[in-house]
Design a protein around this nucleic acid. Structure first.
Lengths: 184, 184
DNA sequence: CAAAGTGATGTGACTTGGTACCGTCACCGT
DNA sequence: ACGGTGACGGTACCAAGTCACATCACTTTG
């Protein structure tokens, strides 16, 4: 993954061949494809981790319910986002910074990103279903939360920003919720 | 496009080569790629038409403003959806019906679909911006509308359904709006 | 302790999506 | 009759992605 990101930023995404990536990593093309479904996937690995993080956080709420009374869907989403964003420590910020322009410049990568986002939303939606939240409330809450995450990530990836991704996400979610009330 | 959809349903998406599609259409591989960016695109052509339809409908509202007073963002979105869904006449329903399972079975196609959806949302968002709707209101209204369209399309593609896509979309949008109010 | 199993990697051949370049042909305006 | 334009065919080529087979380290088992 490191080798790939380096080469992509050095010489561009489409002018880098999988063979080059594998060479720099000290591997072969075949081995590369054993770890990544395709060339794009090397930039999006870790998605499974993220979906699990979100789902587990929501599933873990049950214990709290009994103690502090019912947890609303948006509160559950907030908890899930806290769990997810906590893993984005400050030393990984530059990865996001370098990743963004590469994705922005290539449609095939935007497609993968769009699907990954949809899968995250789906994971949160399913987890909310497991808590008994009905449709379409569950997916609306999920969409709002995931959107807050992505909006916040965009700010976080900016080197000028100094806040935690957790803080940014929380604030963004609050702003979105406020804007919703004014929708109609 | 017809040749492609036929072959995909007959023998599966990945077992059909571009050469076969071109052959059945009486063309060559080269000509195929002159019309479609890649193999997937043959199933998603018309996206440009849809984005233009949505954007134009919203841009056309200005004339109405003066007459009947201000139009809210969601009303503008509703008008855009009416313009879009009006083009899905009943004789095109079976295309949607056959398209759905093909896309559902292939990740690469879901990616393209996810990006197309994002692009539609973006088009609506931009059009709302042109009307002076600020962020994040504009994109929230856009997301809600596009989601209503896709949810409704899913019902419409079901052969059992007998309603117009316009009707289904309108009703879905109303339901989503109602669920929003109950979000928190 | 040897044999067999397991999992990660390498090797090379192959298919196919996708691009580049060039030639041909029809149509159109002058 | 002439040159321009646009759509198409043909060929060669590159790189993504697959597959079958071999190797090697490590572990499990009799």
């Amino acid at each position: 993954m490191r080798a790939a990101l380096e080469l992509f930023t050095e010489q561009g995404y489409d002018t880098t061949t999988v063979n080059e990536i594998a060479d720099r990593a000290g591997l072969t093309k075949t081995t590369f494809f054993r770890h990544f479904r395709d060339k794009r996937e090397v930039l999006f690995a870790g998605q499974d981790t993220h979906t699990r993080l979100l789902a587990d956080a929501i599933d873990a709420i049950d214990a709290i319910d009994a103690a502090d009374g019912p947890v609303t869907p948006l509160e559950a989403v907030r908890a899930a986002l806290d769990a997810l964003t906590a893993t984005f420590t400050d030393d990984r910020r530059d990865v996001g910074t370098r990743l963004r322009p590469v994705i922005a410049g290539h449609t095939e990568l935007q497609e993968r990103a769009a699907l990954k986002r949809a899968k995250l939303t789906e994971a949160v939606t399913d987890a909310l279903h497991r808590r008994g939240v009905p449709e379409p409330t569950a997916s609306l809450a999920a969409e709002l939360g995931i959107r807050a995450f992505y909006d916040a990530f965009d700010q976080w990836a900016d080197p000028a920003s100094e806040q935690t991704l957790t803080e940014l996400t929380r604030r963004t979610l609050d702003e979105l919720r406020a804007a919703l009330a004014a929708l109609d």
